[in-house]
Amino acid sequence: MIVTVTPNPALDITYTLAELRPHASHRVDTVHEQAGGKGANVARVLQALGRRTAAVLPLGGASGAAVKADLDRAGLSSLTIPLAGGVTRRTVAAVDRDDATMLNEPGPELSGPEWGALVAGVRSLLPTAQALVLSGSLPRGVRPEAYGELVRLARAQGVPVVLDAAGPALTEALGSGPAVIKPNAAELRDATGIDDPPAAARELAKAGARTVVASLGPDGLLAVTPAGTWRAFLSPAAAIRGNPTGAGDAAVAALAMGLADRTPLPQALNHAVALSAATVHAPYAGMFDRRAYERYLTQVQILPA
């Protein structure tokens, strides 16, 4: 089983429209709501790949109830932490024919006992876990080193951790030794002040991450490990139009699956690039085009860097 933790989940609302123009009124073609947040997206991808998962997330209010109902409809196993007064945030993705524009609410503040309940929930699942995924922002009221606490908890039970976070939530957890971190290029730069992605990734590896896998957008993935550095990308390069929301979460799902199965990293990178690209073809986060995924698996190039 792969456990995913989403400390700041959301009710994802997706509007599709012909064209998004600033400072204008728009007629929306379709509206879709589903359980969201990065860890929820990871769990959805893993389930589609036939993997057993458990999603841990705090929920509150009407939007939290809608998230729980959607998880249940999708058949996703979840361990939910009830919020006494907080209300689960919403995110809005406005998707046109070229790209997506995101509007993310900040989310509720978690009390000390609520965070303690989340930690206890994770602890209860670790004995049967093959990997732990920690994804997304930390809620208000939770200290920046909170992810580090969960990494140490998992490592004490021999469970490898994939951490997908930014800012202090990322940097404060590095010393705890996550097996894989997955920043994007902007998060690499923000965390290190270094513009060159390989150099920035090496700095984060020195700070405690055993493997750094960085998303470079259309340029694929950069992986820095103790055994070497690789770039993984589609060849020939393809201009993929669609909804990129959740593409990084699909890559995280592949990396977590690789850790659970003890797959060599180059093979895991192959799946991460192909899944990430196939997600752009799907209408909503946490979903992917299976035919595109299978096609892209044959088109990924992995080269030493």
Score class of each variant (00 low, 15 high):
Thr211Val: 15
Ala277Val: 09
Leu20Ser: 05
Pro7Val: 09
Val300Gln: 06
Glu187Ser: 05
Gly286Cys: 11
Phe288Ala: 03
Arg231Pro: 02
Glu33Trp: 06
Met102His: 11
Ala223His: 03
Ala165Cys: 08
Asn270Lys: 14
Ala253His: 07
Gly242Arg: 07
Pro226Asp: 10
Ala74Lys: 12
Gln47Ala: 15
Thr53Ser: 06
Ala200Cys: 09
Val5Cys: 08
Leu59Cys: 08
Ala232Val: 06
Glu33Arg: 13
Gln267Thr: 13
Gly39Cys: 09
Glu187Cys: 05
Val67Thr: 02
Leu79Asn: 00
Gly193Ser: 04
Leu269Cys: 07
Val31Thr: 15
Glu145Gly: 06
Asn41Tyr: 12
Ala237Trp: 08
Gly217Leu: 08
Ala237Gly: 15
Gln47Met: 12
Ala191His: 05
Glu33Met: 10
Trp115Tyr: 12
Leu20Pro: 00
Pro22Thr: 07
Gly61Asp: 10
Ala199Lys: 08
Ala251Gln: 05
Gly220His: 03
Glu149Asn: 00
Thr225Gly: 06
Leu174Thr: 00
Arg155Lys: 15
Pro283Leu: 14
Thr30Gly: 04
Thr80Ala: 13
Thr91Leu: 05
Ala251Ser: 15
Thr192Ser: 08
Arg73Ser: 13
Asn270Asp: 11
Gly36Leu: 07
Ile240Ala: 07
Arg51Trp: 12
Ala55Glu: 10
Ala268Glu: 00
Tyr293Phe: 15
Gly175Arg: 07
Ala173Pro: 01
Ala100Leu: 08
Thr225Trp: 09
Leu118Glu: 05
Ser176Gly: 00
Ala305Cys: 09
Pro197Phe: 12
Pro183Met: 10
Gly116Cys: 10
Val122Asp: 02
Gly208Val: 09
Leu132His: 01
Leu83Gly: 00
Gly112Phe: 07
Val95Lys: 01
Asp98Ala: 15
Gln130Tyr: 04
Gly208Phe: 12
Ala74Val: 00
Leu150Ser: 03
Pro178Asn: 00
Pro283Cys: 14
Gly177Gln: 03
Ala165Trp: 02
Leu259Glu: 01
Leu118Asp: 01
Leu110Asp: 01
Pro139Gly: 09
Leu118Cys: 06
Ala18Leu: 12
Leu103Ile: 15
Thr225Lys: 07
Ala117Trp: 02
Asp72Thr: 15
Ala292Arg: 15
Thr101Gly: 10
Ala278Met: 12
Val119Asp: 00
Ala285Met: 11
Gly220Val: 06
Val252Trp: 04
Glu145Arg: 07
Ala54Ser: 13
Leu46Arg: 07
Asp29Ser: 13
Ser137Val: 09
Leu110Asn: 01
Ala173Thr: 02
Val161Met: 10
Ala93Cys: 08
Leu118Ser: 03
Ile240Tyr: 08
Ala66Met: 13
Ile81Glu: 01
His26Ala: 10
Glu145Leu: 04
Asp261Lys: 08
Val252Arg: 02
Pro244Phe: 14
Arg73Ala: 15
Pro218Lys: 14
Ser124Ala: 15
Ala191Asn: 02
Tyr15Ile: 01
Met257Gly: 08
Gly258Lys: 04
Ala173Ser: 05
Thr128His: 14
Pro244Lys: 12
Ile240His: 06
Trp115His: 07
Ser25Gln: 10
Asp195Gly: 11
Arg51Ala: 14
Thr171Lys: 01
Pro113Ile: 11
Ala48Ile: 02
Val300Phe: 11
Ile13Met: 14
Ala185Asp: 12
Ala223Ser: 05
Leu297Asn: 10
Gln34Val: 02
Ser235Gly: 09
Asp289Ala: 14
Ser77Asp: 02
Val133Glu: 01
Leu163Glu: 03
Ala200Gln: 04
Ala209Trp: 03
Asp289Trp: 12
Glu187Trp: 05
Leu126Asp: 04
